[in-house]
Structures are given as C-alpha cells and as structure tokens.
Amino acid sequence: MRRAAAVLLAAALAGCASMDAAMRTATGYAQSQGLISESQAESLNKSETALRRGSQDISESEEYYIGRAVAAQILARYRPLDDRDLNDYLQEVLQTVAGASDRPAIYGGWHVQVLDTEEVNAMSAPGGFVFVTKGLLERVRSEDELACVLAHEVAHVSKKHGLKTIKAARLTQAFAILGREAAKSYAPEQVSRLTEAFGGAVDDVVDDLVVKGYSRSKEYEADRFAAEYARAAGYDPNALKSFLKRLESEPARGGLFKTHPSPAARLAELGRLEPPPGDVGSAARARRFAAAMRSL
C-alpha cells in the first residue's frame, strides 16, 4: 500500500499539466498490483474531471451558440447598416486588435457589424460578435480611436464578461440535463428543457448588454485590456482617452452613457498610458479612416 501511496504522491507532485497522465499511470499500477479495485481506480481517474458548475465551465461551442442568439436579439432591436466597405474596414481593424489580444482564436472567429442607429453605443456578444453604432462612429476621429473602441469589446469577450452575467441556476439546470445524457442527439423533452435554460441565459446577457450594463469593475477591466491590446497591435492606446474626453463633453443620453461608467470616471481609472514606439503609418491610417467614414 505504501508503494501505491508513493506513486500517487509522485503523481500529485508532478504538476497540474501532467496530473492526468501521472494519475493514470499510478492508478494503473496500483490496480495491477491488486492494491486498489477497478472501481476505485476509475473513481480516482475521474476525480480530476469535475462536473460542470458555473459560467467558467461553458464550452467554446456553447459560448458560440449563446453568442449567436444574443447577436440575433441585438439585431432584432437594431437594424444592421448595409455598407459593405465600412463593415469590411471595421472587420480589418477588429481582426487586427483581436489578433493582439489574449484570445486571438475563438470558436467561430471574430465578426463585426455596424448598427444603423444614431444611439452612441458599442456592444459585444459572447463568441466574438461585435457591434458598433453609426452614432458612435460619427464621434470617432481616427483609426486608433476606432481600434481602442473595438479592443474594449474584444476584452469583454476575451474576459468572458457576458457569460459571467448568466444566472447560476440556469446553468445548473442545463448542466444537470447534460450530465446524465450520453447520446449524440437529444430527445424532444430534453431539447425543450435545454432550450428553456438556453433562452434564460440569452436573456441574462442581453439584459446586461442593452439595459443594465456590466458592472463598473468589468468596464474598467475592459478599458485596461483595450489599451493593452491596442498597443500590442501597434495603435496608440491614448486614443481611448481622446475618445472618452470627446464623450465627456456630450450630454449623456442613453446607449453607452446609460450602460457604462461616466467618461470622466473611466479616464481617471485609465491613468497614464505608454504610446507605441515610433509613429509609422499614421498618415496611411488617417487616409483610409477618412475614406471608410465618408459614407456616414
């Protein structure tokens, strides 16, 4: 028994990344020596695969489907702007800052859509669906400012802020159904119960995105990471401050003003930001930004 204990101890010391392989080696040996039963070995092997409990356990593909439904609800409330050149330009800037984020690869890729409304707002659904309103674009003065706005949305997705707004009870309900089911597809009654939990989760995210807004701490965190991602991509993170300063002088009315902390509070939280080295390509960025915004 001491040998088995020694092997298991070694496995435990071997580090998290290798825990799985080491644990299986140890339990395999202990079982072959008759030191533990088959069921005990299985139990030990399964113990590191804990049952799913909360939003952190939502899978990549589940995040994608929740994000699609949230995006579908946003697009039910706001009309998409049918301007191919403008949307394509935003897509280039989005992929550039997402590529410099800590989540460049996402299940279905990163996508952006301009919304045809004068409301000043930007939103992102889980799974990499980013929205920017025409009203906000009319207040942006450079590609660097646009990159910072999009990087703020990338940060919300990257840090899974949307998923964290889903009430635990919805996930408990869904995970309980999933935890018992092993078949490839679901029976109608299971689909019905899963869809109910899914719809509740989507409502939770939409409610925070459109109505209540994320917590102040999540917004400040998104600003901090936006500055980091923008700088890593080669943009000046101070452009986030110049954009917020412009908003500060506007009368607050709905949209972003309702769902975010005040521009003054965000500016105070951001503090001093280091610009990227050099000033290469700014003339080309100014030209293409002006060209892309001409249609607004």
Partner: peptide, 14 residues
Amino acid sequence: VLLLLAAALGASAA
C-alpha cells in the same frame, strides 16, 4: 524507482 518514474513522466509531460 516508481516514484522517480512517475515524477519523470510528469516532468516530461509538462
């Protein structure tokens, strides 16, 4: 030996 083997397996897997 078993202890070392398990640790070695773990280290290389890291």
